[in-house]
Design a binder for these strands. Structure first.
Ligand SMILES: [Zn+2]
Ligand SMILES: [Zn+2]
Ligand SMILES: [Zn+2]
Ligand SMILES: [Zn+2]
Lengths: 142, 142
DNA sequence: AATAAATTGCAACTGTGTTGCAAAAGTATA
DNA sequence: TATACTTTTGCAACACAGTTGCAATTTATT
């Protein structure tokens, strides 16, 4: 099972034209292991503090640029990242799915199966992207 | 015109059971003047740096607690606040309107007239609040 | 294996948000 | 209006988040 992930990760990095480094592999492993979004502090904790903070920042930025991960809006100062399953490409993030934040367990999940609804804004507004963040109680905590 | 705002602000503070102080009046004036959401740095700039950072943080937190302002989700580390026009009460923010972020001018606006659409999530998810943030080009920049 | 290119870690720095406490301002009462 | 009481503010100090330049290390290429 872990070796299967490693193959997948190698392929993902190659197809993004990124060199395969320990940090990148480890961070992608954490994304695949976790069932929700992660924020910067999680990587420092989960990785056993083996990586420098700066490296983690830079790796996440690289993954963002390449469309490997996307950000999820929050009302606080934290920045949450989730791995892109499908529709993101380099420098062009379109997350056509809803995000869910559980008020019980604090996890943030991508609801890939739930489409963003169609919105009609007042005239004069040119819509490029729509983000939906739902908060409440998740499946597991219910 | 400015005196009319001042009356309005005084009433607002009184009805929230808050004492009327220079900082609070000034910050509410800035909210009423601005046509979009503001973040912490804006208050330091716009107020002419007359207030201490700490005071601004505490004032915004007080306004949040009293339902005078609400937060708007972002994908970066900034926290944006907008004044509540209607439906918020103490410790209970329900922003049943859409937020718009203009990629040209950088402003964030409350679209009070645009309702949050109805969503159907997978079974087991208990929805308490839905936030919608649209990005694109605003009326003024079009 | 040698070279070239990219990535990482460190040091130093800037910015953001918090807490405790004394001074100042606001409110209530006489 | 003067006084006492309560709340708010500003300062100092701190903890944590994020950035930049540069040299050392790692990865890819030949
Ligand atoms: Zn949960
Ligand atoms: Zn997602
Ligand atoms: Zn605009
Ligand atoms: Zn709003």
């Amino acid at each position: 099972m872990p070796s299967k992930n490693k193959e997948l990760i190698t392929e993902l990095l190659k197809s993004s034209k990124l060199s395969i480094t320990e940090t990148r592999v480890k961070i992608l492993e954490l994304f695949l292991k976790s069932n929700g979004a992660l924020e910067h502090a999680d990587f420092e904790k989960l990785s056993g503090k083996s990586f420098d903070r700066v490296t983690i920042y830079r790796t996440l930025q690289t993954f963002l640029d390449k469309g490997i991960v996307h950000k999820i809006p929050t009302t606080d100062t934290s920045v949450r990242y989730a791995i892109c399953r499908s529709e993101c490409r380099e420098h062009e993030h379109h997350d056509h799915h809803v995000h869910f934040r559980c008020e019980e367990c604090g996890s943030t999940q991508c609801l890939e199966e739930t489409d963003i609804p169609v919105l009609s804004l007042p005239k004069g507004y040119d819509v490029r992207n729509v983000e939906v963040v739902v908060s409440g109680v998740c499946k597991a905590c219910h």
